[in-house]
């Protein structure tokens, strides 16, 4: 679960944005939603696949394109 303390520490260590305290309280809602999105899908991630598989899929599926 992403909370405001985690966002504050990540901001200090990595992002280094000039975020107001109120914004740091708001942000975890959106960040947690993004975290959940990948957690839901994570079981489907294939170890042997890399992101370039997407281009391969585009070309592979275009082969059936006609008409």
């Amino acid at each position: 679960m992403v909370g405001s303390e985690l966002v504050r520490r990540m901001n200090e260590g990595y992002a280094r944005l000039r975020l107001e305290a109120a914004r740091i309280e708001e942000l975890p809602i959106e960040v947690e939603q993004l975290r959940k999105a990948i957690e839901v899908a994570s079981a489907k991630v294939d170890f042997d696949i890399d992101p370039y598989d997407f281009q391969a899929a585009l070309l592979e599926l275009s082969a059936g394109a006609g008409k």
Partner: peptide, 29 residues
């Protein structure tokens, strides 16, 4: 404000989202 959340996404999550694209594309097709 729209940009803020992107700074708090771990790289491993982002890359996993990219790794999944081909699989989702094949499944949708």
């Amino acid at each position: 404000h729209r940009l803020h959340a992107g700074f708090f996404i771990p790289a491993s999550h982002y890359i996993r989202a990219l790794k999944l694209r081909g699989q989702y594309l094949r499944a949708f097709a």
